[in-house]
């Protein structure tokens, strides 16, 4: 195939811009990795750019021998797995019926759903509710209150609406009930979308520090995100002012901060490639004939 000159220039520009974007995205990670493997004095002097100086594994050894870090890590994994499952389950059960035009009261339910996008009960009432339900200091306080993301539900609903009605009708004629249709016809056809939702929910749950911060009072329940936030922002908060107690100003070393950030971000980054394969175009091609 012949490529015209204009197209060539476009390709070259395209590649250049993409490379710039890639560098801009990757640099923070490389920088943090470099710092986490460097000795402190070079970090202090501001000499680290891309490669570590005074290579050392000590930071990681210290961090990985910290029992609390592992506990938070375990919590994060449990919260993410359970939370993502619950979120997907509930969102699907809400989005699928809403995608059906013949559902009675669909407009009202939809209106109520959309309403929550713009108005919420506020922090204190929500807290009181969760507390009254006895969920405080349990995993449920972390995974339930934010289980359904309205925006994602609307995306899912729209996707379900796009599926051909004929497929479902065909299944119904073959004697399948609603749940069967959802499970065996609709969901398999929605894999790319479900994969995306899994990713969104999982990342959200992994990074979630606010819910756990509000509802959990026990150290052994804290997820890694909370642990990380305290390391990074804890001592900075107090900042300098003539009033603050000198003892609180003790800083966490930049190397430890970086290593903690890398360790916390790594697993969720690694999820991406596995879900990537579902983002394939054209699952629908050829499913409908006539």
């Amino acid at each position: 195939m012949k490529v015209s000159r204009g197209e060539k220039i476009f390709n070259i520009m395209n590649i250049i811009i993409m490379i710039i974007v890639i560098i801009a995205t990757l640099y923070p990670f490389l920088y943090l990795t470099a710092i986490s493997f460097s000795s402190e004095k070079y970090v202090y002097a501001g000499e680290i750019t891309l490669l570590p100086k005074g290579f050392t594994m000590k930071t990681y050894q210290v961090l990985l021998s910290e029992k609390l870090f592992w506990i938070s890590y375990k919590n994060t994994i449990v919260y993410t797995l359970v939370g993502t499952f619950i979120s997907l389950f509930l969102s699907t059960l809400l989005a699928y019926p809403l995608s059906k035009k013949h559902l009675k009261g669909r407009g009202i339910i939809l209106g109520l759903v959309v309403f929550t996008m713009f108005f919420s009960g506020g922090l204190i009432p929500t807290y009181l509710l969760v507390n009254a339900l006895g969920m405080r200091n349990t995993i449920w306080a972390v995974v339930i209150p934010g289980a359904i993301n309205t925006y994602y539900v609307i995306v899912m609903k729209t996707f379900f609406e796009g599926l051909p009605v004929e497929l479902e009708e065909a299944a119904a004629i073959d004697g399948m009930n609603t749940y069967g249709i959802l499970l065996h016809i609709v969901l398999p056809l929605s894999m790319p979308m479900m994969a995306a939702m899994t990713l969104f929910y999982a990342v959200g749950m992994w990074n979630n520090w606010f819910g756990p911060f509000i509802y959990l009072d026990k150290r052994e329940l804290f997820p890694a995100a909370l642990y990380l936030r305290n390391i990074i922002a804890g001592a900075q908060q107090t900042a300098v002012s003539s009033g603050s107690n000198i003892g609180d100003l003790e800083q966490i070393e930049a190397t430890v901060k970086s290593a903690a950030m890398i360790l916390t971000a790594l697993p969720i980054i690694m999820v991406y490639p596995f879900l990537q394969k579902y983002f394939v175009k054209g699952v629908m091609i050829g499913s409908l004939k006539g």
Binding site: L123, I124, Y127, L128, N131, F213, I214, D217, K218, R219, F222, L226, Y227, R229, N230, I232, A233, G234, A235, Q237, T238, D248
Partner: peptide
Amino acid sequence: LTVVPMSDYDQKRSLLIST
């Protein structure tokens, strides 16, 4: 104890007192 990360101590203190 109610353990609160120092990074957001003030916020949680307000929340707990208000509720």
